[in-house]
């Protein structure tokens, strides 16, 4: 799979959904998640060199996201892409096993940096079930498109499941029970990025 295409597809989806993500964020956050991410991912696409290995490309994309994305999404997504890139190492070809390792590394970095666990109304509520679904599909012998689709579906379900949760992290956590009843915008953007993975994996297959 071409990981640069994954970053590009994620950027397209985020650009298309930027208004909606910012609107979701306006309910419980500071209302800029979509536009912040759009700026960061556009910078990541700009920063993707063609002449380096896939892992290195993701590391550079992560760096661009950190520098150009406002809010906690910058460090969180930037670090996630960077750790995913590091997990790919010097691999020239990226298949189902490599993507699985990259996703696990991304989840671990988000959990460490954000100190979040599942159930706190964050990106982790989309990413953790996505990684679990990916690994389950992989263990069952699934190919990359199958595993990626399983991850995307789990992420989308995970994002929906944040609605009844009370936020425990970030600005929304100051709202206490008033954060209940809203989608977490970070979980929604995470689901978009995993859907982008499924799109590209299916296209390449």
């Amino acid at each position: 799979m071409n990981v640069r295409e994954w970053v590009r597809r994620a950027a397209e989806k985020i650009e298309a959904e930027a208004e909606r993500l910012s609107r979701l964020d306006a309910a419980i956050g500071d209302g800029d998640h979509g536009h912040n991410l759009d700026r960061g991912f556009a910078a990541a696409v700009e920063a993707l060199p063609e002449d380096v290995r896939p892992g290195r490309a993701l590391i550079l994309a992560g760096r661009a996201i950190v520098s150009n994305t406002g809010g906690v999404a910058g460090p969180l997504y930037g670090m996630a892409w960077r750790q995913a890139g590091k997990a790919l190492g010097d691999a020239e070809q990226v298949g189902a096993a490599e993507v699985g390792a990259a996703l696990r590394a991304a989840l671990q970095s988000v959990q460490e940096l954000g100190e979040a666990v599942e159930g706190e109304k964050t990106m982790v509520d989309a990413l953790a079930p996505a990684v679990a679904a990916y690994d389950e599909a992989l263990a069952a012998g699934g190919d990359l498109p199958t595993c990626a689709r399983a991850a995307a579906e789990a992420a989308e379900r995970g994002a929906e499941a944040t609605i009844p949760m009370q936020a425990r992290k970030g600005r929304a956590s100051y709202l206490g029970p008033r954060s209940i009843g809203h989608l977490d915008p970070g979980a929604v953007s995470t689901a978009l990025i995993l859907r982008a993975l499924a799109d590209v994996a299916s296209r390449d297959a």
Binding site: V66, G70, G71, V72, G74, P75, L76, G78, M79, L113, G114, G170, R171
Partner: peptide, 10 residues
């Protein structure tokens, strides 16, 4: 707070 904490951690 927030992104300052995470940037510093990075």
């Amino acid at each position: 707070l927030g992104s300052s904490v995470m940037t510093a951690k990075m």
